[in-house]
């Protein structure tokens, strides 16, 4: 129906108002001012009249394809969701128009909510999309029963229903995807924060244990947070520990050098620790000049050097057992 409706309205507009800006561009439209086909909201009517049957069929279909079989979602929840969706859908379909128009807001919002909750419940995209697509069969069956005598209307309504449900399906998948992307973004952000903690080792000594691959963006964030902590704490020594950094390429080595220089410009000192043999080899092979940068094999050596530089001495007062 929707497609037919759009085509008709399109034609009507072209006849009445042959404005070039409309040609080939009409993707959404409303029913005003055009002679509507009389079967305008057949789908809406059918939805309204057979809500309970349709919902029951739909749930059966959903369960047949696996949804609601495990503990992620209960049967009563599923029933509620299908019912609520059918109510919203029949209301929106009665008003008509494009799914992006205001009348459809509630329906679209509901679908997006369902998608979001599916993500949280750990459903796959396929399982989430099935929510809408398993409604096709009951709806088509109902259309067939209702419009058995009018073949033309049946074909038209079937097509319209397909269009409509496909759009609903796309909305579901888009919302699913978006929720997943938001999740990934948030996790990335959290990882960035988690992987760059600046820790206080001693009065005046900060340490930054770096873990994972260093890229430009990350190094920049790390550098900024370290420098800011130096200002805040007045620490004179910073230890950058790269034990957890798997590889060092030219860019990373240069980033490290820049960090060391920036720390010096602020009036603090820097020691790089945890340089593994392979990394030392790479640095030399790359021709990166780390001269003038204090490097230590491990964090303990770096800390002991830092303490010494600040005038501390560590002594053992009791022999170990």
């Amino acid at each position: 129906m929707w497609h037919a409706l759009i085509m008709r309205v399109h034609n009507a507009i072209q006849l009445k108002n042959p404005s070039p800006s409309f040609v080939g561009e009409v993707v959404s439209t409303n029913n005003q001012g055009t002679d509507m086909p009389k079967n305008k909201s057949r789908i809406a009517e059918i939805l309204k009249a057979h809500q309970d049957d349709l919902a029951a069929e739909w749930v059966k279909n959903l369960q047949a394809t696996g949804t609601g079989k495990d503990s992620r979602i209960s049967e009563s929840q599923l029933r509620e969701q299908t019912k609520e969706f059918l109510v919203l859908l029949s209301e929106a379909a009665a008003v008509g128009g494009d799914v992006h128009s205001q009348a459809w807001n509630a329906t679209v919002d509901f679908l997006e909510d369902v998608s979001r909750s599916r993500v949280q419940q750990g459903f796959t995209s396929e399982e989430t999309a099935r929510f809408i697509f398993s409604f096709k069969q009951p709806l088509f069956a109902r259309l067939r029963a209702e419009l058995a005598k009018d073949h033309e209307a049946f074909a038209e309504e079937t097509w319209a229903a397909t269009e409509l449900l496909d759009k609903m399906g796309l909305i579901t998948i888009a919302a699913f995807q978006k929720t997943r992307e938001d999740l990934i973004n948030r996790q990335q952000q959290e990882m960035l924060e988690l992987s760059t903690p600046v820790v206080k080792m001693w009065d005046g000594i900060l340490a930054l244990p770096m873990i994972g691959t260093l890229d430009s963006a990350r190094t920049q964030i790390v550098m900024e947070s370290l420098l800011q902590r130096i200002v805040d704490t007045g620490a004179e020594l910073a230890i950058i520990d790269i034990t957890g950094v798997p590889t060092v390429d030219t860019l990373v080595a240069q980033h490290l050098l820049k960090t060391v220089t920036a720390i010096r410009l602020m009036g603090a000192d820097c020691i790089i620790s945890g340089v593994r043999p392979q990394i030392a080899q790479t640095i030399v092979h790359l021709g990166v000049d780390l001269q003038g940068v204090t490097t230590k094999a491990n964090l303990a050596d770096a800390l002991s050097l830092a303490l010494k530089k600040l005038g501390f001495a560590v002594t053992r007062t009791k022999a170990a057992n």
């Binding site: 900024e224 420098l227 200002v231 220089t261 920036a262 410009l265 602020m266 009036g267 603090a268």
Partner: peptide, 21 residues
Amino acid sequence: PAVAITLVELGLSLPGVKMAL
């Protein structure tokens, strides 16, 4: 910090100048 990062990127490391926090 922002000034230090920018100076390094600019290519100035001011060797020979004593800096303090």
